[in-house]
Design a binder for these strands. Sequence first.
DNA 1: CTGATTGCAAATGCTTTGCACGCCA
DNA 2: TGGCGTGCAAAGCATTTGCAATCAG
Lengths: 164, 164
Amino acid sequence: MDDAILERFNSFVKRRALRRTTQRDAIVRIIFAKDEHFTAEELFDRIHRTDSQASRATVYRTISLLVESGLLREIDLGGEEKTYDPNFLDKPSHNHLVCIDCGKVVEFEDSHIDLLNDCITRRLGFRPMRQSIHIEAGCEKLRLNGICPNLLATRLSGKRIKKR
Amino acid sequence: MDDAILERFNSFVKRRALRRTTQRDAIVRIIFAKDEHFTAEELFDRIHRTDSQASRATVYRTISLLVESGLLREIDLGGEEKTYDPNFLDKPSHNHLVCIDCGKVVEFEDSHIDLLNDCITRRLGFRPMRQSIHIEAGCEKLRLNGICPNLLATRLSGKRIKKR
DNA sequence: CTGATTGCAAATGCTTTGCACGCCA
DNA sequence: TGGCGTGCAAAGCATTTGCAATCAG
């Protein structure tokens, strides 16, 4: 799967008469090695934790290319920085639930929602293109037990929670 | 309605031991005089087209206060700048459809969607708090007749279309 | 070879902040 | 009178861009 994406990106690059480079290959590989959302800065860090290198400018430029090619999608998680989601190839129509307690992001798909959105859009006189649902929710465990497992994990790992 | 909001804002200000000022009053009045979405910069312009005055800093600071008070909501229309929506008092659970052809934003409410979101959230083990749907759609008229009335109006008024 | 790509640093553009002065309570 | 609020300009930050050197095809 990993290499299949790289191949798709390279054929996109060729189609546009652009060039395949070491940096672009590395960036694409690193992005799709995990299914995690990321910001440009986080990606830049991830790259520099490997033996690959790429400047900040190249990271930003390659992200733009990936978005144009349809392999990557910009999503809104409410943070200040732009966030990207590499999972739209596997799940073309998924949505996001963000836990306001711990910042955890859960992806979900639902055909009923898709259908409803489609109907609503048509009824309003438009042509459905793309839809995204952003749910903010509280942690039920935190409310009932006073403890949120994700929150705990988040604190321990020192991972920062997206601000609102 | 206009003054009722101002009153609510002022009681919020009082509750927080803050102070009522000419600038804050003016900003609140101008925001809620229309039901249009706006960016900080657009609001700043609107203010300076009246006889009221307020610095950019004060505009930003007052917007923050309004969001904290719950009277105003930040929404995602896909643009670069933060966008604010003054209509959540009238329609607490509305969503947005953005036309990719002309940039027009249509607000809509749908109880089925709300219900579905609620169910999905609970099933995932979370406590529903807030949900927002963002639909990107194409103009049906443009596709069928080759002309989009909104696009035309947008061009004539010189109003800029939100970028993607 | 030729033009695309990279890396660097400078530039952008929105938003926030430090500070001195002024004004509300 | 004590601070909060304001305006200004400077600072912050994420992102973009100009440019010279480098590299892919």
